[in-house]
């Protein structure tokens, strides 16, 4: 895991825009593996494991039933040879934010 720190960090007024964590290789695979277990409709996080031209076939095959996912990540466009997961840390203090304590969103990004 690579944590990128910018010199503004650590101070009281540092922006969480300046903080990001990259998860790659084995940890990325593990995160995907843990998220992608079970039936697609029942997953709490619905992530596309790699960039594709269309939505995955098993999403379409199951779309007669609703999806319970709280986090949905859709990844389309041109194909890239390598992929990374970005975990964006949330320092969001809004009281009614009840999705995830430690990080707010986890998304796939082709680089």
């Amino acid at each position: 895991m690579t944590v990128t720190l910018i010199c503004r960090l650590g101070s009281l007024y540092a922006s969480h825009y300046d903080i990001f964590v990259t998860q790659h290789d084995v940890l990325r695979d593990l995160a995907l593996h843990l998220s992608n277990a079970g039936k697609v409709n029942r997953r709490k996080r619905l992530l596309m494991p790699k960039r594709e031209l269309d939505l995955p076939g098993d999403w379409e095959r199951n779309n007669d039933e609703h999806y319970i996912a709280q986090i949905v990540s859709i990844h389309t466009g041109k194909c890239f040879s390598t992929l990374q997961i970005f975990l964006v840390l949330s320092c969001n203090n809004h009281q009614d934010h009840n999705v995830g304590m430690d990080f707010l969103f986890c998304f796939l990004q082709g680089k």
Binding site: I68, I74, T76, V99, F107
Partner: peptide, 30 residues
């Protein structure tokens, strides 16, 4: 993605949506 590529899906509990793409035009999923 264009309109034709999206199919209908129901996400009654979704709180976070991440749309990641690589294109100069993008139709938001209906």
């Amino acid at each position: 993605m264009n309109e034709m590529q999206w199919f209908d899906m129901e996400f009654p509990k979704a709180e976070i949506l991440i749309l990641n793409f690589s294109s100069d035009k993008y139709v938001l999923p209906p």
